[in-house]
Design a protein around this nucleic acid. Structure first.
Length: 431
RNA sequence: GGAGAGGUGGCAGAGUGGUCGAAUGCGCCGGUUUGCUAAAUCGGUGACCGGGGUAACCUGGUCCGCAGGUUCGAAUCCUGUCCUCUCCGCCA
């Protein structure tokens, strides 16, 4: 959420920002309602003050008649207060609906416009080399080497679920190990997090469970939801806390399963593992001082690049355009890996993303920091980034590492965990 | 899952209807004392939302896990809920 004070002081900027993000929001209406709320709030506080004075005087009143008349006055004041409060609450509810729909402000350098406006800012160390043989996609490769069982997944849980088998299961573990090893060297604190979370935590991060079109699976009869990312649990971990400033920045990484309904996503390019209902992800999360968040954002992006460079996968990095940013993000970088089997002759597909959410999530989750010796507290900044999302990384690995002979070379950094250099026997040289 | 106990300031811990934002101790900040350190001693020390002031500061409201309720008035009484602890049950 944005700072209400900031909205009142800068309504034009906020309105422009909504437009840049392709959202309709009635900022002037919010300003009007919020101003009314503040006036009412003051009237309510004044009535409360008077009632408090009366209440305190009752204890000291000597005779019974006096006591009764003051009680009556107290009752009257509280009733007036209640009436004002009801009016206040009604207006606040309308203001709140607009307020919650307002996205974070946008980094000045983020490209303005829709999805197509996102700008490439970087390429990976590995070049895209054209493959001079019939290229298979990961679904075909998975079938050929008995790596992915979509039919089995569908039988158990429906479309969008799958079994990883044999080397694909080993690759899942290897990718987790590789990502974690990389992050531990960088001083991240590692956690395996809950795969379910309460509704209020999801809402704090910016998800809306149990609504129409929700991306979130909910558990019947419990206030529990399957998490869509460990960002939810890692960010929620410090909800309501005040962190010592000298402990910042806090760098966490979490391993979790991620569950997404993908409501409304039918029809989009979603063959095979690309858009599934469950996958495993190693996520980075940071709590920082405000002045540290921009550097941390670049650092997350660097780490994501380092991980994919290490795998030898070609990729590009996009600075996501204003119109394609989610609500909490101030700026977002996506890594798109080259997927030779995607589309017609290969396409880039999103594999990771890193967002700087500034104080937007922290305000909602009430996560603050305190500088020792200084008065008051301030909101932290939060950032999240994907270290590795297994399902999409698998697509990139299988498709990029396929050989003319049909086998798949295991990226060198993963070989120690997979236990082999190659999936499938190299086909004998043609005579 | 069953039975019991409990959740109070940064921490520990008093407080069972008004004079309680809350004793006391620890911690922290500042002063005094001291050759340094330590000790002693004095004073100060919560958060959030408003109003006033250039500012130091003054001032109103709210907050005793959370949400409701009773009452003129709730940390205190009632209901629900979450969490913690002990015992029992179950279980990888």
């Amino acid at each position: 959420m944005l700072d209400k004070r900031y909205i009142l002081d800068n309504p034009e900027l906020v309105q422009q920002n909504c437009e840049a993000r392709g959202l309709r929001a009635d900022v002037p209406r919010f300003v009007q309602l919020e101003t009314q709320c503040r006036t009412l709030q003051q009237e309510i506080e004044e009535l409360s003050r008077q009632a408090n004075v009366v209440s305190k005087s009752i204890g000291q009143a000597k005779d019974e008649a006096e006591r009764e008349s003051r009680k009556e006055e107290g009752r009257r004041l509280r009733e007036q207060k209640e009436a004002k409060q009801a009016e206040h609450d009604r207006i606040a509810a309308e203001a709140g609906a607009i307020y919650r729909s307002l996205p974070n402000m946008t980094h000045p350098e983020s490209p303005r416009g829709g999805e197509d406006a996102s700008g490439e800012i970087r390429r990976g160390a590995t070049q895209v080399v054209p493959m001079r043989f019939p290229v298979l996609d990961h679904v075909q490769l998975g079938e050929q080497h008995d790596l992915i069982d979509f039919e089995g997944g569908a039988r158990i849980a429906g479309h969008g679920f799958y079994f990883l088998r044999n080397e694909a299961a080993l690759l899942e573990l290897a990718l987790q190990q590789y990502a974690v090893e990389t992050l531990l060297k960088e001083g991240f604190t590692l956690a395996v997090t809950p795969d379910l979370a309460r509704g209020e935590i999801l809402a704090g991060i910016g998800y809306i469970p149990r609504g129409p079109e929700t991306q979130i699976y909910s558990v019947e009869n419990f206030d529990l939801n399957l998490v869509a990312t460990a960002e939810i649990t890692l960010g929620g971990l410090y909800a309501g806390e005040v962190i010592d400033a000298d402990k910042l920045p806090l760098k966490l990484c979490g391993i979790s399963h991620c569950f997404r309904t993908e409501a409304g996503a039918a029809g989009r390019a979603s063959r095979g593992l690309y858009r599934v209902h469950q996958f495993t992800k190693v996520e980075m999360f940071a709590f920082t001082l405000p002045e540290q968040s921009e550097d941390m954002h670049n650092y997350f992006c660097d780490l994501e690049c380092q991980i994919f460079d290490g795998l030898g996968i070609p990729y590009r990095v996009l600075d996501i355009a204003s119109g394609d940013l989610g609500g909490p993000a101030y700026r977002k970088f996506d890594l798109e890996a080259w997927m030779p089997g995607r589309g017609d002759g290969g396409e880039y597909g999103e594999v990771t993303s890193a967002s700087n959410c500034t104080d937007y999530q922290a305000r909602r989750l009430n996560i603050r920091y305190k500088v020792k010796g200084e008065k008051g507290t301030h909101l932290v900044h939060t950032l999240n980034g994907t270290a590795v999302a297994i399902s999409r990384a698998l697509i990139a690995i299988l498709e990029n590492c396929q050989q003319p002979d049909g086998s798949i070379i295991v990226p060198e950094v993963l070989q120690k965990w997979v236990g082999k250099e190659r999936i499938g026997a190299p086909r004998a040289e043609e005579e």
